[in-house]
């Protein structure tokens, strides 16, 4: 048993050999099908990819599957990524395209697609629980059109610059800004007057 553990922690273990490697080195090694190098790439970007997929698919159960499929596409041909600095953008673009493709074929089952913000408002006591506000905000985001939701996810939740987000979405920066503005306007409409009450609950929870 000890020998097996020693082998696992040997020179090929990602933690020791590849962990500090640059993306360029990892991509190059992955192209030579060195699996431990690819594992480090997975570790580096899996959270980003999964978070984006989860957000734009409105928390669909297939999110993990789509995130894995994204990495599989990279593993099949790492040379698709011409420049290592474009790797994150490439992964996010492939992942988001996959979400769009998959749900264009079959309707998306959102987190709370069937629920309406008004229906979620808690009785006469108002919005007491922060979790209720969270669900209402999730529902509002899920109701945005796909492209608006994606723009919001990239810029607001992934903290990407407008330029980087525009590259991921293969849009001009102006087009991205327009999508973002429409997304925010639409969210304000969806949340409506309830939004102010939700804010009170958020203030109280602090």
């Amino acid at each position: 048993m000890g020998a097996i553990l020693a082998l696992r922690a040997g020179p090929e273990a990602p933690a020791t050999r590849w962990q500090s490697a640059t993306d360029a080195a990892l991509l190059e090694a992955s192209a030579r099908h060195i699996e431990p190098a690819f594992v480090v790439l997975i570790q580096r970007y899996q959270r980003d990819v999964y978070r984006l997929v989860w957000r734009i698919s409105a928390g669909h159960a297939d999110s993990e599957d789509i995130a894995q499929e994204t990495f599989l596409r990279l593993w099949v041909n790492p040379a698709q990524v011409r420049e290592a600095k474009a790797l994150k953008g490439w992964l996010l673009r492939v992942a988001s395209n996959m979400v769009m493709d998959r749900y264009r074929r079959k309707p998306m089952l959102n987190i709370d697609a069937a629920e309406d913000i008004a229906d979620m408002a808690p009785g006469p006591d108002g919005w007491r629980e922060l979790s209720q506000v969270s669900r209402a905000v999730d529902t509002a985001i899920a109701q945005l059109p796909d492209r608006q939701r994606m723009a919001l996810a990239l810029v607001h939740f992934e903290q990407m610059s407008n330029i980087a987000a525009a590259e991921v979405m293969e849009l001009s920066v102006d087009a991205l800004e327009s999508l973002l503005a429409r997304a925010r306007r639409r969210l304000k409409e969806i949340l409506g007057p309830e939004g102010k009450e939700m804010l009170l609950a958020v203030e109280k929870a602090k």
């Binding site: 989860w54 928390g59 995130a67 987190i111 506000v133 905000v137 949340l191 939004g195 804010l199 958020v202």
Partner: peptide, 19 residues
């Protein structure tokens, strides 16, 4: 105010065994 509300949006659940 919208940003304050967006900050309350849920985060994705932890994924186990992804790798």
């Amino acid at each position: 105010e919208l940003d304050q509300l967006l900050a309350t949006a849920s985060l994705p659940p932890q994924i186990n065994g992804f790798e």
